[in-house]
Design a protein around this nucleic acid. Structure first.
Length: 490
RNA sequence: GCCGCCUUAGCUCAGUUGGUUAGAGCGCUAGAAUGUGGAUCUAGAGGUCCCCUGUUCGAUUCAGGGAGGCGGUACCA
Protein backbone atom coordinates (compact mmCIF):
# COMPACT_ATOMS: atom_id res chain seq x y z
CA UNK A 1 0.00 0.00 0.00
CA UNK A 2 1.05 3.55 -0.59
CA UNK A 3 3.63 2.60 -3.18
CA UNK A 4 1.66 3.53 -6.23
CA UNK A 5 1.39 7.09 -7.38
CA UNK A 6 -1.98 8.62 -6.48
CA UNK A 7 -4.63 8.42 -9.15
CA UNK A 8 -4.67 11.50 -11.32
CA UNK A 9 -7.69 13.71 -10.82
CA UNK A 10 -7.93 15.00 -14.38
CA UNK A 11 -7.06 13.46 -17.71
CA UNK A 12 -4.53 15.37 -19.78
CA UNK A 13 -6.43 15.62 -23.02
CA UNK A 14 -7.01 18.21 -25.70
CA UNK A 15 -10.10 19.04 -27.73
CA UNK A 16 -9.82 18.09 -31.39
CA UNK A 17 -8.83 20.71 -33.88
CA UNK A 18 -6.94 22.95 -31.44
CA UNK A 19 -3.40 21.96 -32.30
CA UNK A 20 -0.40 22.13 -30.00
CA UNK A 21 2.49 23.53 -31.99
CA UNK A 22 6.13 22.72 -31.38
CA UNK A 23 8.98 25.01 -32.24
CA UNK A 24 9.59 23.91 -35.82
CA UNK A 25 5.94 24.48 -36.79
CA UNK A 26 5.74 27.82 -34.98
CA UNK A 27 8.77 29.05 -36.86
CA UNK A 28 7.49 27.77 -40.20
CA UNK A 29 4.13 29.51 -39.74
CA UNK A 30 5.62 32.78 -38.55
CA UNK A 31 8.14 32.86 -41.36
CA UNK A 32 5.31 32.23 -43.82
CA UNK A 33 3.27 35.09 -42.33
CA UNK A 34 6.24 37.44 -42.49
CA UNK A 35 6.93 36.64 -46.13
CA UNK A 36 3.30 36.90 -47.19
CA UNK A 37 2.55 40.13 -45.32
CA UNK A 38 5.80 41.38 -46.86
CA UNK A 39 4.21 40.85 -50.27
CA UNK A 40 1.00 42.61 -49.17
CA UNK A 41 2.94 45.58 -47.81
CA UNK A 42 4.95 45.86 -50.99
CA UNK A 43 1.70 46.07 -52.94
CA UNK A 44 0.69 49.01 -50.74
CA UNK A 45 -1.54 47.43 -48.14
CA UNK A 46 -1.52 48.55 -44.49
CA UNK A 47 -1.82 46.45 -41.36
CA UNK A 48 -5.00 46.21 -39.31
CA UNK A 49 -5.64 43.86 -36.41
CA UNK A 50 -9.05 43.40 -34.83
CA UNK A 51 -9.99 41.43 -31.72
CA UNK A 52 -10.90 37.77 -31.53
CA UNK A 53 -14.56 38.41 -30.68
CA UNK A 54 -17.24 40.23 -32.63
CA UNK A 55 -20.89 40.62 -31.79
CA UNK A 56 -22.57 37.64 -33.34
CA UNK A 57 -24.96 39.73 -35.44
CA UNK A 58 -21.99 41.66 -36.86
CA UNK A 59 -20.69 38.40 -38.31
CA UNK A 60 -23.84 38.22 -40.38
CA UNK A 61 -25.15 34.73 -39.85
CA UNK A 62 -25.86 32.52 -36.87
CA UNK A 63 -28.07 34.88 -34.97
CA UNK A 64 -28.13 34.32 -31.22
CA UNK A 65 -31.84 33.59 -31.10
CA UNK A 66 -31.49 30.55 -33.30
CA UNK A 67 -31.65 27.14 -31.67
CA UNK A 68 -27.95 26.52 -31.92
CA UNK A 69 -26.00 29.76 -31.46
CA UNK A 70 -22.78 27.76 -31.48
CA UNK A 71 -23.29 25.93 -34.76
CA UNK A 72 -20.37 26.77 -37.02
CA UNK A 73 -18.99 29.45 -34.73
CA UNK A 74 -17.98 29.54 -31.08
CA UNK A 75 -20.31 31.91 -29.29
CA UNK A 76 -20.93 33.05 -25.73
CA UNK A 77 -22.96 35.68 -23.95
CA UNK A 78 -21.30 38.81 -22.56
CA UNK A 79 -22.16 40.36 -19.16
CA UNK A 80 -25.05 42.24 -20.75
CA UNK A 81 -26.39 39.02 -22.32
CA UNK A 82 -25.35 40.04 -25.83
CA UNK A 83 -24.09 37.17 -27.97
CA UNK A 84 -20.46 37.39 -29.06
CA UNK A 85 -18.67 35.03 -31.42
CA UNK A 86 -15.06 34.22 -32.10
CA UNK A 87 -14.36 35.46 -35.63
CA UNK A 88 -14.58 32.70 -38.24
CA UNK A 89 -12.60 34.71 -40.82
CA UNK A 90 -10.84 38.06 -41.13
CA UNK A 91 -13.17 39.52 -43.73
CA UNK A 92 -16.31 40.00 -41.65
CA UNK A 93 -14.43 41.96 -38.93
CA UNK A 94 -12.87 44.07 -41.68
CA UNK A 95 -16.31 44.93 -43.06
CA UNK A 96 -17.38 45.96 -39.56
CA UNK A 97 -14.27 48.10 -39.09
CA UNK A 98 -14.60 49.74 -42.50
CA UNK A 99 -18.26 50.58 -41.83
CA UNK A 100 -17.46 51.98 -38.38
CA UNK A 101 -14.60 54.17 -39.63
CA UNK A 102 -15.79 54.88 -43.12
CA UNK A 103 -15.66 58.67 -42.79
CA UNK A 104 -12.01 58.81 -41.78
CA UNK A 105 -10.50 56.21 -44.11
CA UNK A 106 -8.64 56.92 -47.32
CA UNK A 107 -10.64 55.12 -49.98
CA UNK A 108 -10.13 52.51 -51.27
CA UNK A 109 -9.12 51.16 -47.87
CA UNK A 110 -6.38 48.61 -48.46
CA UNK A 111 -5.39 46.53 -45.48
CA UNK A 112 -3.73 43.24 -44.62
CA UNK A 113 -4.14 41.11 -41.49
CA UNK A 114 -2.81 37.86 -40.08
CA UNK A 115 -4.14 35.96 -37.12
CA UNK A 116 -6.12 33.05 -35.76
CA UNK A 117 -9.75 32.38 -36.65
CA UNK A 118 -12.09 29.76 -35.19
CA UNK A 119 -14.70 27.50 -36.74
CA UNK A 120 -16.77 24.98 -34.85
CA UNK A 121 -16.62 22.22 -37.44
CA UNK A 122 -15.28 18.71 -37.70
CA UNK A 123 -11.50 18.82 -38.10
CA UNK A 124 -9.55 16.68 -40.57
CA UNK A 125 -6.04 16.39 -41.97
CA UNK A 126 -4.87 19.99 -42.43
CA UNK A 127 -8.22 21.24 -41.09
CA UNK A 128 -8.46 22.72 -37.62
CA UNK A 129 -10.97 24.48 -35.41
CA UNK A 130 -8.37 27.15 -34.65
CA UNK A 131 -6.16 28.16 -37.52
CA UNK A 132 -4.18 31.05 -38.98
CA UNK A 133 -5.21 33.13 -41.94
CA UNK A 134 -3.39 35.91 -43.74
CA UNK A 135 -5.61 38.30 -45.70
CA UNK A 136 -5.50 41.33 -47.96
CA UNK A 137 -8.56 43.33 -48.99
CA UNK A 138 -9.46 46.47 -50.91
CA UNK A 139 -12.66 48.06 -49.64
CA UNK A 140 -14.19 50.66 -51.94
CA UNK A 141 -12.50 49.30 -55.06
CA UNK A 142 -14.83 48.46 -57.91
CA UNK A 143 -13.64 47.19 -61.26
CA UNK A 144 -11.96 44.05 -62.51
CA UNK A 145 -8.45 45.48 -62.24
CA UNK A 146 -8.90 45.41 -58.44
CA UNK A 147 -9.86 41.72 -58.63
CA UNK A 148 -6.93 41.06 -60.93
CA UNK A 149 -4.63 42.75 -58.45
CA UNK A 150 -5.81 40.32 -55.74
CA UNK A 151 -5.26 37.38 -58.06
CA UNK A 152 -1.77 38.44 -59.14
CA UNK A 153 -0.86 39.17 -55.53
CA UNK A 154 -2.23 35.81 -54.43
CA UNK A 155 0.13 34.09 -56.84
CA UNK A 156 3.03 36.11 -55.49
CA UNK A 157 1.99 35.26 -51.92
CA UNK A 158 1.97 31.55 -52.75
CA UNK A 159 5.51 31.81 -54.08
CA UNK A 160 6.54 33.75 -50.99
CA UNK A 161 5.04 31.00 -48.83
CA UNK A 162 7.36 28.49 -50.46
CA UNK A 163 5.39 27.02 -53.37
CA UNK A 164 7.57 26.74 -56.46
CA UNK A 165 6.73 26.83 -60.19
CA UNK A 166 4.02 24.33 -60.97
CA UNK A 167 3.35 23.51 -57.32
CA UNK A 168 0.32 25.78 -57.10
CA UNK A 169 -2.31 27.45 -59.22
CA UNK A 170 -4.77 30.28 -58.71
CA UNK A 171 -8.05 29.12 -60.24
CA UNK A 172 -10.40 31.93 -61.23
CA UNK A 173 -14.09 32.03 -62.06
CA UNK A 174 -16.97 34.44 -61.66
CA UNK A 175 -20.42 34.15 -60.14
CA UNK A 176 -21.90 35.78 -63.21
CA UNK A 177 -21.02 32.83 -65.42
CA UNK A 178 -22.29 30.35 -62.84
CA UNK A 179 -25.59 32.22 -62.73
CA UNK A 180 -25.79 32.12 -66.52
CA UNK A 181 -25.38 28.35 -66.53
CA UNK A 182 -27.95 27.85 -63.77
CA UNK A 183 -30.43 29.94 -65.73
CA UNK A 184 -29.50 28.06 -68.90
CA UNK A 185 -30.61 24.70 -67.47
CA UNK A 186 -33.74 26.24 -65.99
CA UNK A 187 -32.73 25.80 -62.37
CA UNK A 188 -35.22 28.06 -60.66
CA UNK A 189 -35.36 27.00 -57.00
CA UNK A 190 -32.64 28.12 -54.63
CA UNK A 191 -32.23 24.55 -53.46
CA UNK A 192 -31.49 23.11 -56.90
CA UNK A 193 -29.16 26.01 -57.74
CA UNK A 194 -27.19 25.37 -54.54
CA UNK A 195 -26.98 21.66 -55.21
CA UNK A 196 -25.67 22.27 -58.73
CA UNK A 197 -23.04 24.73 -57.49
CA UNK A 198 -21.88 22.32 -54.79
CA UNK A 199 -21.65 19.53 -57.33
CA UNK A 200 -19.57 21.73 -59.65
CA UNK A 201 -17.19 22.57 -56.82
CA UNK A 202 -16.31 18.88 -56.50
CA UNK A 203 -15.12 18.38 -60.06
CA UNK A 204 -11.45 18.17 -59.06
CA UNK A 205 -12.32 15.77 -56.24
CA UNK A 206 -14.76 13.32 -57.81
CA UNK A 207 -14.10 13.80 -61.53
CA UNK A 208 -16.60 13.99 -64.35
CA UNK A 209 -18.66 10.92 -63.50
CA UNK A 210 -18.93 11.78 -59.80
CA UNK A 211 -20.16 15.28 -60.62
CA UNK A 212 -22.53 13.84 -63.24
CA UNK A 213 -24.03 11.65 -60.49
CA UNK A 214 -24.42 14.64 -58.17
CA UNK A 215 -26.04 16.70 -60.92
CA UNK A 216 -28.44 13.85 -61.67
CA UNK A 217 -29.87 11.34 -59.21
CA UNK A 218 -27.09 11.31 -56.59
CA UNK A 219 -23.82 9.73 -55.57
CA UNK A 220 -22.72 6.92 -53.24
CA UNK A 221 -19.44 7.46 -51.36
CA UNK A 222 -16.94 4.71 -50.61
CA UNK A 223 -18.39 4.04 -47.17
CA UNK A 224 -21.81 3.43 -48.75
CA UNK A 225 -23.36 6.73 -47.72
CA UNK A 226 -25.63 8.31 -50.34
CA UNK A 227 -25.76 11.99 -51.31
CA UNK A 228 -28.93 13.14 -53.10
CA UNK A 229 -28.33 14.88 -56.43
CA UNK A 230 -29.78 17.96 -58.15
CA UNK A 231 -32.12 15.88 -60.30
CA UNK A 232 -31.17 17.40 -63.67
CA UNK A 233 -32.12 15.48 -66.83
CA UNK A 234 -29.48 14.04 -69.15
CA UNK A 235 -29.35 17.14 -71.31
CA UNK A 236 -29.03 19.44 -68.29
CA UNK A 237 -26.19 17.37 -66.86
CA UNK A 238 -24.43 17.51 -70.22
CA UNK A 239 -24.73 21.27 -70.48
CA UNK A 240 -23.45 21.91 -66.95
CA UNK A 241 -20.53 19.54 -67.49
CA UNK A 242 -19.69 21.14 -70.83
CA UNK A 243 -19.39 24.44 -68.98
CA UNK A 244 -17.46 23.01 -66.03
CA UNK A 245 -14.93 21.38 -68.31
CA UNK A 246 -14.39 24.37 -70.58
CA UNK A 247 -11.07 25.04 -68.84
CA UNK A 248 -8.07 25.06 -71.25
CA UNK A 249 -4.32 25.42 -70.99
CA UNK A 250 -4.23 29.16 -71.48
CA UNK A 251 -6.53 31.89 -70.27
CA UNK A 252 -7.39 33.05 -73.78
CA UNK A 253 -8.26 29.52 -74.95
CA UNK A 254 -10.51 29.08 -71.91
CA UNK A 255 -12.25 32.37 -72.64
CA UNK A 256 -12.97 31.19 -76.15
CA UNK A 257 -14.32 27.81 -75.00
CA UNK A 258 -16.43 29.50 -72.35
CA UNK A 259 -17.91 31.85 -74.93
CA UNK A 260 -19.47 28.83 -76.61
CA UNK A 261 -20.55 26.97 -73.46
CA UNK A 262 -22.21 29.80 -71.65
CA UNK A 263 -24.80 31.28 -74.01
CA UNK A 264 -25.70 34.89 -74.71
CA UNK A 265 -27.69 35.93 -71.65
CA UNK A 266 -26.95 39.18 -69.87
CA UNK A 267 -25.12 37.53 -66.97
CA UNK A 268 -23.12 35.43 -69.44
CA UNK A 269 -21.96 38.59 -71.23
CA UNK A 270 -21.16 40.31 -67.92
CA UNK A 271 -19.19 37.31 -66.69
CA UNK A 272 -17.18 36.97 -69.89
CA UNK A 273 -16.42 40.68 -69.84
CA UNK A 274 -15.19 40.39 -66.23
CA UNK A 275 -12.84 37.55 -67.08
CA UNK A 276 -11.56 39.34 -70.16
CA UNK A 277 -10.81 42.46 -68.15
CA UNK A 278 -9.08 40.38 -65.49
CA UNK A 279 -7.06 38.66 -68.20
CA UNK A 280 -5.90 41.99 -69.60
CA UNK A 281 -4.95 43.28 -66.17
CA UNK A 282 -3.06 40.09 -65.34
CA UNK A 283 -0.93 40.62 -68.41
CA UNK A 284 -0.21 44.16 -67.25
CA UNK A 285 0.77 42.78 -63.85
CA UNK A 286 3.00 40.26 -65.67
CA UNK A 287 1.46 37.35 -63.78
CA UNK A 288 2.97 34.14 -65.21
CA UNK A 289 0.49 32.27 -67.42
CA UNK A 290 0.89 29.04 -65.43
CA UNK A 291 0.19 30.73 -62.08
CA UNK A 292 -3.37 31.76 -62.92
CA UNK A 293 -5.92 29.69 -64.81
CA UNK A 294 -9.59 30.29 -65.55
CA UNK A 295 -11.53 27.34 -64.16
CA UNK A 296 -15.33 27.33 -64.46
CA UNK A 297 -15.68 24.69 -61.73
CA UNK A 298 -14.52 27.09 -59.01
CA UNK A 299 -17.46 28.04 -56.81
CA UNK A 300 -16.21 29.06 -53.33
CA UNK A 301 -18.50 29.80 -50.42
CA UNK A 302 -22.09 30.53 -51.21
CA UNK A 303 -22.76 33.36 -48.80
CA UNK A 304 -21.17 36.64 -49.68
CA UNK A 305 -19.32 36.53 -52.98
CA UNK A 306 -20.94 38.58 -55.73
CA UNK A 307 -18.56 38.57 -58.71
CA UNK A 308 -15.18 37.04 -59.50
CA UNK A 309 -14.09 34.22 -57.16
CA UNK A 310 -10.78 32.44 -57.00
CA UNK A 311 -8.97 29.74 -55.13
CA UNK A 312 -5.31 29.00 -54.43
CA UNK A 313 -4.65 25.31 -54.83
CA UNK A 314 -1.58 23.36 -53.83
CA UNK A 315 -0.87 21.05 -56.75
CA UNK A 316 2.17 19.40 -55.29
CA UNK A 317 1.34 15.96 -53.98
CA UNK A 318 1.76 15.72 -50.19
CA UNK A 319 2.85 12.30 -49.00
CA UNK A 320 2.98 11.54 -45.28
CA UNK A 321 5.66 9.54 -43.50
CA UNK A 322 3.69 6.32 -44.04
CA UNK A 323 3.73 6.94 -47.77
CA UNK A 324 0.05 7.81 -47.97
CA UNK A 325 -1.07 10.68 -50.17
CA UNK A 326 -2.90 13.31 -48.15
CA UNK A 327 -5.36 15.51 -49.96
CA UNK A 328 -4.78 19.18 -49.19
CA UNK A 329 -6.37 20.99 -52.12
CA UNK A 330 -7.39 24.57 -51.51
CA UNK A 331 -5.04 26.60 -49.31
CA UNK A 332 -6.58 29.99 -49.90
CA UNK A 333 -9.31 31.84 -51.65
CA UNK A 334 -11.01 35.09 -52.27
CA UNK A 335 -13.27 37.11 -54.45
CA UNK A 336 -15.52 40.13 -54.75
CA UNK A 337 -18.03 40.82 -51.98
CA UNK A 338 -19.90 43.99 -52.85
CA UNK A 339 -22.70 43.60 -50.29
CA UNK A 340 -20.81 42.90 -47.08
CA UNK A 341 -20.22 46.47 -45.90
CA UNK A 342 -23.70 47.54 -47.01
CA UNK A 343 -25.10 45.49 -44.13
CA UNK A 344 -23.78 48.14 -41.76
CA UNK A 345 -23.88 51.35 -43.79
CA UNK A 346 -26.90 50.77 -45.99
CA UNK A 347 -24.88 52.05 -48.92
CA UNK A 348 -23.29 49.61 -51.35
CA UNK A 349 -19.51 49.44 -51.02
CA UNK A 350 -17.56 47.38 -53.56
CA UNK A 351 -14.82 45.21 -52.05
CA UNK A 352 -12.48 42.41 -53.04
CA UNK A 353 -10.02 40.33 -51.06
CA UNK A 354 -7.91 37.25 -50.66
CA UNK A 355 -7.02 34.93 -47.79
CA UNK A 356 -4.19 32.42 -47.39
CA UNK A 357 -4.79 29.47 -45.03
CA UNK A 358 -1.46 29.57 -43.25
CA UNK A 359 -2.17 26.60 -40.99
CA UNK A 360 -3.25 24.35 -43.80
CA UNK A 361 -0.30 25.32 -45.96
CA UNK A 362 2.11 24.75 -43.08
CA UNK A 363 0.37 21.45 -42.29
CA UNK A 364 0.93 20.38 -45.89
CA UNK A 365 4.64 21.13 -45.58
CA UNK A 366 4.75 19.38 -42.20
CA UNK A 367 2.98 16.26 -43.49
CA UNK A 368 5.48 15.88 -46.31
CA UNK A 369 8.36 16.31 -43.86
CA UNK A 370 9.59 19.63 -45.22
CA UNK A 371 9.66 21.40 -41.87
CA UNK A 372 13.05 20.72 -40.35
CA UNK A 373 13.85 20.73 -36.64
CA UNK A 374 15.79 23.80 -35.61
CA UNK A 375 19.15 23.83 -33.92
CA UNK A 376 19.00 23.91 -30.13
CA UNK A 377 21.02 26.18 -27.88
CA UNK A 378 24.64 25.67 -26.97
CA UNK A 379 24.49 23.88 -23.61
CA UNK A 380 26.98 24.69 -20.87
CA UNK A 381 27.21 21.68 -18.59
CA UNK A 382 27.04 22.28 -14.88
CA UNK A 383 29.78 20.12 -13.38
CA UNK A 384 29.95 21.71 -9.94
CA UNK A 385 26.71 20.84 -8.20
CA UNK A 386 27.62 22.89 -5.14
CA UNK A 387 28.26 26.09 -7.04
CA UNK A 388 26.99 26.47 -10.60
CA UNK A 389 28.42 29.99 -10.99
CA UNK A 390 31.04 29.09 -13.60
CA UNK A 391 28.45 27.50 -15.89
CA UNK A 392 26.17 30.54 -15.50
CA UNK A 393 29.08 32.88 -16.32
CA UNK A 394 30.05 30.97 -19.47
CA UNK A 395 26.49 30.82 -20.77
CA UNK A 396 26.09 34.59 -20.19
CA UNK A 397 29.30 35.25 -22.05
CA UNK A 398 28.06 33.27 -25.05
CA UNK A 399 24.71 35.08 -25.01
CA UNK A 400 26.34 38.48 -24.84
CA UNK A 401 28.19 37.49 -28.01
CA UNK A 402 24.81 36.88 -29.66
CA UNK A 403 24.85 33.08 -29.48
CA UNK A 404 21.91 31.01 -28.32
CA UNK A 405 23.15 29.41 -25.12
CA UNK A 406 21.96 28.11 -21.78
CA UNK A 407 23.50 26.72 -18.63
CA UNK A 408 22.08 23.30 -17.69
CA UNK A 409 19.36 23.97 -15.11
CA UNK A 410 18.47 20.42 -14.12
CA UNK A 411 19.81 18.42 -11.21
CA UNK A 412 21.23 15.40 -13.03
CA UNK A 413 24.77 14.18 -13.49
CA UNK A 414 27.01 14.59 -16.46
CA UNK A 415 25.76 11.72 -18.59
CA UNK A 416 22.15 12.87 -18.50
CA UNK A 417 23.37 16.40 -19.21
CA UNK A 418 25.09 15.19 -22.39
CA UNK A 419 21.96 13.32 -23.32
CA UNK A 420 19.90 16.43 -22.70
CA UNK A 421 22.13 18.48 -25.00
CA UNK A 422 21.81 15.81 -27.67
CA UNK A 423 18.02 15.74 -27.49
CA UNK A 424 17.78 19.51 -27.58
CA UNK A 425 19.67 19.44 -30.87
CA UNK A 426 22.52 21.45 -29.36
CA UNK A 427 25.29 22.15 -31.88
CA UNK A 428 27.90 22.20 -29.11
CA UNK A 429 28.47 21.55 -25.45
CA UNK A 430 30.82 23.50 -23.18
CA UNK A 431 32.40 21.79 -20.17
CA UNK A 432 34.34 23.38 -17.38
CA UNK A 433 35.22 21.27 -14.35
CA UNK A 434 38.07 21.25 -11.89
CA UNK A 435 40.64 20.25 -14.51
CA UNK A 436 39.72 23.02 -16.90
CA UNK A 437 39.59 25.61 -14.14
CA UNK A 438 43.06 24.62 -12.98
CA UNK A 439 44.43 24.83 -16.53
CA UNK A 440 42.54 27.98 -17.51
CA UNK A 441 40.84 26.26 -20.46
CA UNK A 442 37.39 25.19 -21.57
CA UNK A 443 36.46 21.86 -23.14
CA UNK A 444 34.20 22.23 -26.16
CA UNK A 445 32.44 19.37 -27.90
CA UNK A 446 31.03 19.69 -31.39
CA UNK A 447 28.10 17.28 -31.12
CA UNK A 448 27.33 16.96 -34.82
CA UNK A 449 31.01 16.41 -35.68
CA UNK A 450 31.24 13.96 -32.78
CA UNK A 451 28.35 11.91 -34.07
CA UNK A 452 29.88 11.91 -37.53
CA UNK A 453 33.20 10.57 -36.24
CA UNK A 454 31.60 8.10 -33.86
CA UNK A 455 29.74 6.43 -36.72
CA UNK A 456 33.04 4.98 -37.90
CA UNK A 457 34.11 3.72 -34.47
CA UNK A 458 33.58 0.05 -33.68
CA UNK A 459 34.55 -0.77 -30.12
CA UNK A 460 33.49 0.77 -26.86
CA UNK A 461 37.06 1.23 -25.74
CA UNK A 462 38.02 3.08 -28.88
CA UNK A 463 34.96 5.29 -28.53
CA UNK A 464 35.78 6.13 -24.95
CA UNK A 465 39.33 7.06 -25.77
CA UNK A 466 38.60 8.96 -28.97
CA UNK A 467 36.33 11.63 -27.44
CA UNK A 468 35.17 12.47 -30.98
CA UNK A 469 34.57 16.09 -31.83
CA UNK A 470 36.01 17.27 -28.55
CA UNK A 471 38.86 19.68 -27.88
CA UNK A 472 40.31 22.01 -25.27
CA UNK A 473 40.65 25.72 -25.93
CA UNK A 474 42.03 28.61 -23.94
CA UNK A 475 39.31 30.20 -21.88
CA UNK A 476 39.71 33.46 -23.85
CA UNK A 477 38.84 31.72 -27.11
CA UNK A 478 35.52 30.33 -25.87
CA UNK A 479 33.24 32.59 -27.89
CA UNK A 480 35.22 32.38 -31.12
CA UNK A 481 35.50 28.58 -31.08
CA UNK A 482 31.84 28.02 -30.23
CA UNK A 483 30.72 30.54 -32.82
CA UNK A 484 32.71 28.71 -35.47
CA UNK A 485 30.88 25.47 -34.66
CA UNK A 486 27.44 27.08 -34.59
CA UNK A 487 27.98 28.89 -37.87
CA UNK A 488 29.40 25.85 -39.63
CA UNK A 489 26.26 24.03 -38.59
CA UNK A 490 23.75 26.34 -40.26
C1' G B 1 -24.91 15.26 -38.95
C1' C B 2 -24.59 10.40 -41.83
C1' C B 3 -21.50 5.84 -43.18
C1' G B 4 -17.29 2.53 -42.28
C1' C B 5 -13.10 0.92 -39.44
C1' C B 6 -10.50 1.08 -34.88
C1' U B 7 -9.32 1.39 -29.12
C1' U B 8 -4.06 -3.90 -25.30
C1' A B 9 2.73 -0.50 -21.76
C1' G B 10 4.96 6.50 -22.89
C1' C B 11 4.87 5.18 -28.68
C1' U B 12 3.99 1.40 -32.75
C1' C B 13 1.65 -3.11 -32.50
C1' A B 14 1.32 -8.85 -31.45
C1' G B 15 -1.89 -12.13 -28.60
C1' U B 16 -5.66 -14.60 -25.66
C1' U B 17 -10.96 -20.46 -30.09
C1' G B 18 -13.74 -17.37 -22.54
C1' G B 19 -9.21 -19.91 -17.82
C1' U B 20 -4.47 -19.07 -13.19
C1' U B 21 2.13 -15.22 -14.08
C1' A B 22 -0.92 -10.55 -21.10
C1' G B 23 4.06 -10.14 -24.83
C1' A B 24 7.63 -7.74 -28.62
C1' G B 25 10.24 -3.59 -30.77
C1' C B 26 11.21 1.40 -29.82
C1' G B 27 11.45 4.79 -25.75
C1' C B 28 12.51 5.38 -20.37
C1' U B 29 15.74 4.27 -15.80
C1' A B 30 20.23 2.07 -14.01
C1' G B 31 24.80 -0.39 -14.92
C1' A B 32 29.18 -1.95 -18.25
C1' A B 33 31.85 3.41 -18.22
C1' U B 34 36.24 5.80 -12.30
C1' G B 35 33.30 14.01 -15.24
C1' U B 36 31.22 12.38 -21.86
C1' G B 37 25.54 12.52 -26.23
C1' G B 38 24.67 8.61 -30.73
C1' A B 39 25.97 3.01 -31.63
C1' U B 40 26.86 -1.87 -28.53
C1' C B 41 25.94 -5.27 -24.21
C1' U B 42 23.29 -6.35 -19.37
C1' A B 43 19.44 -5.53 -15.96
C1' G B 44 15.02 -2.99 -14.36
C1' A B 45 10.59 -0.09 -14.04
C1' G B 46 6.12 0.49 -16.59
C1' G B 47 -0.93 -2.47 -17.76
C1' U B 48 -8.36 -0.75 -15.15
C1' C B 49 -6.34 -5.09 -22.20
C1' C B 50 -11.26 2.56 -23.42
C1' C B 51 -15.89 2.87 -19.99
C1' C B 52 -20.72 0.90 -18.23
C1' U B 53 -24.28 -2.97 -18.16
C1' G B 54 -25.39 -7.96 -19.34
C1' U B 55 -24.36 -13.43 -20.32
C1' U B 56 -21.05 -16.88 -17.61
C1' C B 57 -18.26 -20.77 -12.29
C1' G B 58 -14.93 -17.24 -14.68
C1' A B 59 -14.93 -11.52 -19.48
C1' U B 60 -9.19 -8.05 -21.93
C1' U B 61 -11.83 -11.87 -25.30
C1' C B 62 -18.92 -12.74 -26.25
C1' A B 63 -23.62 -9.29 -26.50
C1' G B 64 -25.88 -4.39 -25.86
C1' G B 65 -25.06 0.67 -24.86
C1' G B 66 -21.64 4.78 -24.35
C1' A B 67 -17.05 7.56 -25.02
C1' G B 68 -12.72 8.52 -27.77
C1' G B 69 -9.67 8.01 -32.29
C1' C B 70 -9.02 7.38 -37.71
C1' G B 71 -11.04 7.61 -42.63
C1' G B 72 -15.01 8.82 -46.08
C1' U B 73 -19.15 11.99 -46.90
C1' A B 74 -22.24 16.39 -45.80
C1' C B 75 -21.39 21.51 -44.37
C1' C B 76 -17.36 24.98 -44.84
C1' A B 77 -19.10 32.34 -44.55
Amino acid sequence: MGKKAPKPIDLARKPRGFPDKREALIHAEQAMIERITGVYRRWGFEGLDTGAFEYTDALGKFLPDEDRPNAGVFALQDDDDQWMSLRYDLTAPLARFAAENWQTLAKPFRRYAAGPVWRNEKPGPGRFREFLQCDADSVGAAGSHADAEMIAMAAEAMRAAGAADGEFAIRVNTRQLLNAVLDGVGAASAEVRLTILRALDKLDKFGTSGVADLLGAGRMDESGDFTKGAGLDVDGVKRVLAFAEAGRETRSDTLEALGQAVGTSESAQTGLAELKAISRALEAFAAPEADVVFDPSVVRGLEYYTGPVFEAELLKETVDEDGRTVRIGSVGGGGRYDDLVARFTGQKVPATGFSVGISRLAAAFAISGEIRALNGPVVVLNLDREDPSEALRLASELRRAGLRAEAYMGSSGMRPQMKYADRRGAPAVVMVGEDELAKGVVTIKDLKEGARQAAAIESNQEYREARPGQFEAPRAELVARVRAIVEADQ
